[in-house]
Design a protein around this nucleic acid. Structure first.
Lengths: 138, 138
DNA sequence: ATATATGCAAATTCTTTGCTGCTCG
DNA sequence: CGAGCAGCAAAGAATTTGCATATAT
């Protein structure tokens, strides 16, 4: 019984080692956007080296099974590839990252690129915001 | 005769040393978005140390005289603060960076943030594109 | 069987920092 | 004068790499 994961890996020419399985599993169930160090910590106990974590993340991201994110804090962050692309809003008060499902954005950006003589291959957008409700923050 | 630059520095409580003058001058006339190493190289001959370059860039950016950019290649890039905020389109073929003056974007993003209960403090957007014209690239 | 991954440690790259002496205001 | 800056070299943080061994397909 070839799992969907195994099939995806075969299709993309990525070997699915035990360590990669574990990393993917952790990312699958993660609610946040962990960096390499976070991941290495979360899978501690399996004796996986940092080098392996980095190499796995690179391979898997290149193969498209993961997406690498950069929220401007100097570390790359990762998440499992989702059906649909999305952007993020960073809560400046708590650091929490919210995924944005929207967007009527793409066509607008496409037009901007077109006007300059470019084909839009991709884009990256991050919103930075502060919660409106007074809330109970320190 | 207090130059506009000197005044801006005084207002923001930043000391305008010779080395900072030089760095600002280079950035002023730069057509691109140099990183710290680029700048250090361009001002070689003035015997300014890398540490000074980094410290100056940090101070000046914090004071708002410069803007720090991050195009995802692992190095911070800088440009003089301009009258109006703007985004960038990265030419994936040549690496060239084009400044976008547009945008009817802000209100749209503002609305997205609002809907989530956030006040939009800022945002970052980069477009990645390939030139449409066949051109004479290698 | 063999192309690829892993582990370990050392190496890179970008950026920051401690300390002492100099300088802007 | 005195707070803040410059230079130098050493430290840090994130990520990569060389090499011998193990493993997926």
């Amino acid at each position: 019984m070839a799992s969907a994961l195994e099939q995806a890996c075969r299709e993309r020419g990525v070997r699915l080692s035990l360590q990669r399985r574990i990393i993917l599993e952790v990312l699958q169930t993660a609610e946040d956007h962990p960096c390499a160090a976070d991941l290495h910590q979360r899978i501690a106990g399996h004796g996986i080296s940092v080098a392996t974590v980095y190499r796995a993340l690179n391979s898997l991201a290149e193969a498209g099974l993961l997406v690498r994110r950069d929220f401007g804090d100097g570390k790359a962050r990762y998440e499992r590839t989702q059906a649909q692309r999305h952007d993020h809003l960073i809560d400046l008060r708590s650091g929490k990252i919210i995924e944005l499902s929207d967007c009527r954005l793409a066509p607008l950006l496409q037009a901007v690129a077109d006007r300059l003589g470019y084909r839009l291959v991709g884009y990256r957008m991050d919103l930075f915001g502060e919660p409106v409700s007074p809330g109970v923050y320190p």
